[in-house]
Write a protein that binds this DNA or RNA. Structure first.
Length: 544
RNA sequence: GCCCUCUUGGUCAAGCGGUUAAGACGCAGCCCUCUCACGGCUGAAUCAGGAGUUCGAUUCUCCUAGGGGGUACCA
């Protein structure tokens, strides 16, 4: 079999040599230890948190080491491509402030010298290398039907063609030139497969930055290099692109560990040096049966990165939570440096957690509360409005109309050394402050308290005027309470509760209920100030 | 099935042969306080199991169990 003749037969239009391509991608000039990493999403129409997780790891690694980060779009699976997917990826990355040194703009311009940064535009490159491998006898055309993982077909092939159960040679690897010609004459489509040099008994070792050295069975399958549409599946594209683009560190999910031996054999066949890997753990949830499972688009809304914007979590809160998962050193650092931007935090490549973490929305809420607690009332208002304009236009209208008022609302129990930490996302604020929009419709009052409540509010409302200070306000509550037989002295109350109708706490609760309908709200005096005397009086009278 | 990988409280985890086994979230209780919070303090709760190595194992080795991942002309 003349391999060069076969190669020319298969790729009559490919004129460039591998060297021609290599010349276009000179090695990067890097300082010692400097990394080049990438984020390589597929445009599937949504961004999975696990996928974003990798981008974020790469981003952090690069930012800490002065490295280069590029974005490469892996749009080689035409069946999965969705319109607008590219835009969505760019939009989400932008919202999170994840920036790249090299990428292709939305209108198709490459920024950076190692493009094109979109795989579908690199078809010729892949073909050149595929042709080279065929010419060297390391790859061959395959005319079989696509199996695409269909069990029956795979099974059939196994029993028919596999010499022992350790290897999976493809039947087409031994086609004669004549047979190939016959196929081509019929116009049969062909894929290109790697002619594995292994028999299934070899072992290989490779290093992973998180897990250390991994030993595995070497690849012994004639894997696909080029699909019958001339486009490579992930492994071949990965080997070529990351080599050409000068990647020094590939961050990818754990699910790729198993296929790394395949990638390594492809690198070797191509004559490329292998690249360092960092296989990060997959983010999980606890399933109904108590087991962990991969966080999924189908069952977990939080698997989709758009979720956080719909709910209105600050981007930095999400990022800080993720940083928590990536590196456990972040939390102590944050405690020590409450006011520094998370971008100031550094950690080592080897310090990334190796355990599949369970995604915890409760913890995220806590992180987010702390992020929001640092916002001034004005900033909170701005962010809340921005969120509403996108996801709740009705609300946005109200917020804009009452701008001054709502800034005051947002400032309640804020802009002080120890702000409240109740709010963790913008979508919850409207409900949280519902009584600032209109008089409360529902009341959390205990049934048993109803009589006392009426009595108290009646007297309190009688001579109500807006207090000038928190102290004054409280004095007035106390006076009324005292008059009605409540304990002013909490100690006395604790000793003999039977002597009183309640204590000052109870009295305050009644006022709170009258004004907000709740037992729990920010400082009442602040609320009164924002509501204004007229409104407060109205609500008190309503509650009589 | 086969291959790879992981295993410290409910969750995130520190720990790298000798510790009263950190810390955070959550939970419970107390304190602070003029109410709601914030904050402070205290508490319950963890080394998957079994062998071995060792004077000594959470830490090293092996086995088992369990979890997760992979096993496509998907990434």
């Amino acid at each position: 079999m003349n391999n060069q003749e076969l190669a020319d037969l298969l790729f009559p239009n490919v004129k460039l040599s591998a060297q021609d391509i290599l010349d276009k991608y000179p090695p990067r000039k890097l300082q010692k230890g400097q990394i080049v990493s990438r984020y390589a999403p597929s445009p599937t129409g949504f961004m999975h948190i696990g996928n974003f997780f990798q981008a974020f790891i790469s981003y952090n690694l690069c930012r800490m080491n002065g490295g280069t980060l590029f974005l490469r779009l892996e749009d080689t699976d035409d069946k999965r491509e969705i319109k607008g997917a590219k835009e969505l990826i760019y939009e989400l990355l932008g919202r999170f402030g994840i920036t790249f040194d090299e990428y292709q703009t939305l209108d198709g311009k490459d920024v950076g010298a190692y493009g094109p940064y979109v795989q579908s535009q690199r078809k010729e490159i892949y073909q050149v290398f595929a042709k080279k491998l065929v010419a060297e006898g390391k790859a061959f055309p395959c005319f079989c039907k696509r199996t695409e993982g269909k069990a029956e077909i795979l099974e059939q092939r196994k029993t028919k063609f596999i010499e022992n159960d350790e290897r999976e040679y493809d039947p087409c690897r031994d086609l004669t030139l004549e047979e190939v010609k016959a196929h081509l004459a019929k116009g049969d489509k062909f894929a290109i497969r790697l002619k594995t040099k292994n028999s299934g008994n070899e072992r290989i070792k490779f290093k992973d930055l998180i897990k250390g050295e991994i030993e595995a069975k070497a690849n012994a399958k004639d894997v696909i290099l080029l699909k019958d549409d001339g486009i490579p599946p992930y492994p071949f594209a990965h080997a070529i692109d990351d080599t050409l683009m000068g990647t020094t560190l590939v961050v990818r999910g754990e699910e790729y560990i198993s296929s790394t031996p395949v990638h390594l054999e492809i690198f070797e066949a191509l004559g490329f040096k292998p690249i360092s890997y960092c296989h990060n753990p997959l983010i999980c949830k606890i399933a109904e049966n108590g087991n962990r499972r991969k966080i999924s688009k189908r069952y977990d809304p939080e698997a989709n990165m758009i979720f956080y914007f719909e709910k209105g979590y600050p981007a930095d809160a999400v990022l800080e939570y993720l940083l928590n998962i990536i590196n456990s050193g972040f939390e102590p650092w944050r405690l020590k440096n409450p006011d520094l931007n998370w971008r100031k935090f550094t950690f080592g490549v080897n310090d990334i957690t190796a355990v599949t973490p369970v995604f915890d929305l409760v913890k995220l809420a806590d992180v987010s509360k702390n992020v929001i607690a640092k916002m001034s009332g004005e900033v909170l208002y701005k962010n809340w409005l921005a969120w509403a304009e996108e996801f709740n236009p009705e609300l946005a209208k109200k917020l804009k109309l009452g701008k001054e008022y709502f800034i005051k609302v947002c400032t309640i129990d804020r802009d002080k050394p120890k702000p409240r930490k109740d709010i963790y996302c913008y979508s919850m604020i409207e409900e949280y402050f519902d009584y600032m929009f209109e008089a409360p419709k529902k009341s959390e009052i205990d049934k048993a308290d109803k009589k006392l409540y009426k009595e108290f509010i009646n007297v309190y409302a009688e001579n109500f005027k807006m207090p000038a200070s928190n102290e004054e306000w409280f004095e007035e509550v106390k006076q009324v309470a005292d008059k009605l037989g409540y304990a002013i002295d909490n100690k006395a109350y604790k000793e003999h509760p039977e002597n009183y109708k309640g204590n000052t706490a109870k009295a305050c609760e009644f006022v709170r209920l009258a004004l907000t309908g709740r037992k729990n709200s920010p400082t009442l005096f602040d609320i009164m100030q924002v509501l204004g005397e007229e409104e407060v009086t109205k609500r008190l009278n309503l509650s009589k």
